[in-house]
């Protein structure tokens, strides 16, 4: 009886020590494959839940765009310098029948959508904001994305930042290649000249400073996804 009690007490102490040690830690490394496996299972659940008809609308009018935080991975807001890189153009390529090269003027001529939606940040905050742009689904139709294109990679000139998406989320009617915010052309803080924006993905999936939209049969990771954030990152 005493032995069992001592055993249990020791077990409790051991567990407490493990927990204390685990605090503020990432947990045992051996569990990482399990966590990755769970992430893929979660992605399956999220894909099942996904509907093109699920739309987001920002409820509050008064705070639209007032405090939308800005972020980029470069040291300063990345600016496209035509003198160095030539005129900016969006390339739509990969698994498509007709690769496109669209200047900002070309984009502006395409059917556009203006939407006031929520921006869901992975950190837990939301901001209401208004973007104007062309649906990715429009670009996919124009370029003739092939049926094997199950993924889309959105690439930028922000120090190699990119994020790949599942095709369903990319073709959601609220997923835009946006070139205006609050009725004005994007500033360099918000991804000029064009960026991806959609309420169906967390903020980090929405590539800013966009240069290329590449349809692909395979996924291609992403800047934050490769560091450990969920690749799917859906809302």
């Amino acid at each position: 009886m005493m032995d069992r009690r001592r055993f249990l007490a020791l077990g409790g102490l051991g567990a407490a020590a493990l927990i204390a040690e685990a605090c503020d830690s990432r947990g045992p490394k051996s569990v990482l494959p399990v966590l990755r496996w769970a992430e893929r299972r979660n992605e399956g659940v999220e894909r099942v839940l996904f509907r093109h008809t699920s739309m987001d609308h920002a409820a509050s009018e008064r705070s639209v765009g007032r405090k939308m935080p800005s972020y980029y991975i470069s040291h300063a807001p990345p600016v496209w310098d035509p003198a160095v890189r030539g005129a900016w153009a969006l390339e739509v390529g990969g698994a498509v029948r007709k690769p496109l090269r669209l200047t900002l003027e070309d984009l502006a001529k395409l059917p556009r959508v203006t939407q006031r939606i929520n921006h869901y940040c992975v950190e837990g905050w939301t901001a209401a904001t208004q973007f104007t742009g062309v649906r990715v689904s429009t670009l996919a139709r124009l370029a003739g994305a092939t049926p094997d294109a199950g993924y889309v990679d959105f690439q930028s000139f922000d120090d190699g930042y990119h994020e790949s998406w599942d095709i369903d989320s990319a073709l959601h009617p609220q997923t835009l290649v946006a070139f205006m915010r609050e009725g004005r052309p994007l500033s360099s803080w918000y991804g000029a000249p064009a960026r991806v924006h959609s309420p169906v993905k967390l903020g980090y999936k929405n590539t800013k400073y966009l240069t290329k939209v590449v349809f692909m049969p395979q996924r291609n990771g992403g800047y934050w996804s490769d560091k450990g954030y969920e690749w799917y990152g859906g809302t």
Partner: peptide, 13 residues
């Protein structure tokens, strides 16, 4: 627990 945001999210989910 989790060390950083992504680690904590992976554990949480």
């Amino acid at each position: 627990f989790g060390g950083w945001l992504a680690g904590a999210r992976n554990w949480h989910f």
